[in-house]
Write a protein that binds this DNA or RNA. Structure first.
Length: 645
DNA sequence: TCGGTTGCCTAGGCTCGCAT
DNA sequence: ATGCGAGCCTAGGCAACCGA
């Protein structure tokens, strides 16, 4: 804002800072916007600043100057008697001391001097706020002057500005002390609360210990057995009951385990299990119980393996001459099909550990020779936490195995080799056996080789391979299919058994609707609903046992006599070629790829239909399938015991 | 501390309506 | 007739809050 020239006629212009004009009589010549800000900051009379300004102007509390400026005398008191070299913080503090309730127009002449204000800080100076030293404006001039004069008499040699600065400094110190005091007070209250809580915890713990001790004492005396009885057929209802504590509020630990077992042994959602059990238990309680039970099992496994390590270390310390420690870890690991969770596979690991920290030598115990003394071993079977498969390679498999073993506290070959363990003192030996049971996937086979390489230089770690029996059934089926194909070739057949079964099942799935209708036409509606309504099962390569479902269905619906007439009728019809691009019909899709795929599919299905009809007419195909069905029953029983009818 | 409630979110499956 | 997307449902996870 430019300095109004007319203002110089009544006051002497001494400076222009940040658009504000400072006059030698201690007033500001400021613009309307600044004046409104001043009114807003000092809260003159309350109400909207605009209305306040209008009222003040009407009462000549501000003087309007030519050029759109106003003369505001709010700084008169300060400027009268002081040297005017105060910095902005000082100025703000002074204003706080002098927060006026009303502005009194003053006619007093001003003293000379100039005021310097930090322009940047000035614009963001804090708004006036009431302080402990707040005074009404009516008394401000007289009281402040009297107070300062009194101080000057006491503190001789100080200027008024110096005294004021001292007051401001003391104010700041007081504020800081108050703040620190509040903090300490709060901390004190918190600590008192914490002490009370700890005392309460201590008291309760002591009570619980007393109660448990009182409970345990008579039982151990009277029976001499463990406090917990194992679950048997007779007491299963009692042990698995859902019970609550005496206030009927909290579930007992046994009940929580029971809930989680019931949930895991059933296919009932958490939200519905309460309804099934006729207990008003929330789904969250059941979910929490599952987590707690799982955590307890994991904790037990970790505790067991730590105990094992401790036992081995104790034996090492004792330096028992000629003793042998043996640990056997049987690891079974397999992954699910892909995309089971977040587009990824999941892998599970079953671990069976048995160990004996001090196996007697054959010289010590004559009965030991020739047989293991398994009663000296302590064992545990546990399941590691399920992990998602991020890397399907052998290295990824090793990483997952290592991670899952760590999760149950069992050292892996890797961790043993890395830790340089097996450095037992002279006289004591600890042997570790790792039995790795997996499928015959290429990554698993390679991973097993990696494990063997890892421990090849360590004679105290033995790594053994084993094949999973369930996967073995698939491998046996595969081998029998190969043998069957060789025999078929010798009998002049150009089709193979698995591929012909897969082709026929795909064809039957493709024509399922027509197949059902034709079956109903030929064999009646009742037979159609019973035998032909369900979708034909699929053959899946790799899951070789899947063909048993197909051959069982083939003979379950009546074999060649029932199936062939229907198939012949359905497959003799020309396939629907209405969508083939060779026809001159308009094609909706503009996607060339999908057109190509459609053509390819139609072509393939045409070939499959011909092949299906061909093998269905061949008596040998039915005989081979029947042989497979009969011979496979045992394998399926091994592989998936619940599936066999 | 425990158990219940509520709200918000994700994933997957299914149905239905609409456009082609 | 078919493909596609919106919407709904189910199952479940997580966090915050509340009351006893």
């Amino acid at each position: 804002m430019a300095a109004p020239q007319s203002a110089m006629s009544t006051s002497t212009l001494v400076g222009v800072l940040q658009g504000r004009v400072f006059l030698s009589n201690g007033v500001l010549a400021i613009g309307r916007a600044d004046l409104l800000e001043v009114i807003g900051r000092f809260g003159f009379r309350g109400g909207a600043p605009e209305r306040t300004l209008d009222r003040c102007l009407a009462r000549s509390m501000f003087m309007r100057l030519p050029g759109g400026s106003y003369e505001a005398r709010i700084v008169k008191v300060v400027l009268q008697d002081f040297d005017l070299s105060m910095q902005t913080p000082t100025w703000d503090a002074v204003v706080r001391h002098l927060r006026p309730r009303a502005l009194q127009p003053s006619t007093s002449t001003a003293s000379s001097g100039s005021m310097q204000i930090d322009s940047e800080a000035s614009s963001s100076a804090p708004a006036a706020r009431p302080l402990s030293r707040k005074r009404p404006f009516e008394e401000d001039e007289e009281q402040l002057s009297e107070e300062l004069q009194r101080y000057q008499t006491t503190y001789v040699g100080f200027t008024k500005t110096g005294l004021l600065n001292e007051l401001i400094r003391k104010d700041a110190e007081l504020e800081a002390c108050k703040h620190a005091h509040d903090n300490l007070k709060k901390k004190h209250v918190d600590l008192q609360k914490k002490v009370r809580l700890l005392q309460e915890q201590k008291r309760r713990s002591a009570q619980t210990i007393q109660k448990l001790a009182a409970k345990a004492k008579p039982k151990t005396k009277s029976t001499g057995k463990s406090r917990r009885e194992p679950i048997t057929v007779e007491n299963v209802d009692q042990r698995m009951a859902i019970q609550r504590t005496k206030h009927n509020r909290y579930l007992t630990v046994e009940s929580r385990i029971s809930l989680s077992l019931r949930r895991n042994c059933s296919n009932v959602a958490c939200a519905d299990l309460g309804l099934v059990l006729l207990d008003d238990v929330s789904r969250w309680t059941i979910a929490r119980s599952e987590v707690q039970t799982g955590a307890a099992l994991m904790g037990h496994a970790i505790s067991f393996h730590r105990g094992m390590d401790q036992d081995f270390q104790d034996q090492c310390k004792e330096q028992a001459s000629g003793t042998l420690g043996v640990a056997i870890h049987c690891i079974s690991q397999d992954a699910t099909n892909g995309s089971i969770w977040q587009k990824r596979k999941l892998v599970a690991l079953l671990l069976h550990t048995a160990y004996c920290s001090n196996l007697p030598s054959s010289e010590d115990d004559s009965s030991f020779a020739g047989s293991w003394k398994w009663d000296l071993f302590t064992s545990l079977e546990c399941i590691a936490d399920v992990q998602p498969v991020a890397d399907g390679t052998a290295a990824g498999s090793i990483g997952l195995t290592h991670k899952m073993l760590q999760s149950v506290g069992c050292p892996s070959i890797w961790s043993l080799v890395e830790a340089g363990q097996q450095k037992a003192p002279q006289g004591h030996t600890t042997l570790r056996f790792y039995v790795l049971t997996t499928d015959r996937g290429p990554n698993e086979v390679l991973a097993k080789k990696y494990w063997m390489v890892l421990c090849r230089d360590n004679p105290k770690i033995v790594c053994l391979h084993a094949d999973c029996n369930e996967h073995l059934a698939h491998l046996i089926t595969l081998q029998s299919l190969k043998t069957c194909d060789n025999l078929l070739k010798k009998h002049g057949r150009d089709w193979k058994l698995f591929s012909s079964l897969a082709t026929s099942s795909n064809t039957l799935r493709d024509v399922s609707k027509a197949f059902f209708q034709e079956w109903c036409n030929q064999h009646g509606d009742r037979s159609g609903v019973e035998l032909a309504r369900r979708l034909w099962p699929k053959c899946i390569g790799g899951r070789w046992n899947s063909i048993y479902e197909v051959v069982c269905r083939m003979f379950g619906v009546g074999g060649q006599a029932m199936l062939l007439p229907v198939l012949a009728k359905v497959l003799s019809k020309t396939p629907d070629s209405s969508k083939l691009p060779e026809n001159n019909k308009p094609v909706h899709s503009v996607d060339e790829l999908s057109v190509d795929q459609m053509k390819e599919y139609q072509k393939k299905m045409g070939t499959w239909r011909v092949n299906t009809l061909k093998v269905a007419n061949d008596k040998l195909w039915w005989i081979a399938a029947d042989c497979l069905r009969i011979s496979g029953a045992t394998l399926v029983q091994f592989s998936a015991p619940g599936q066999q009818d």
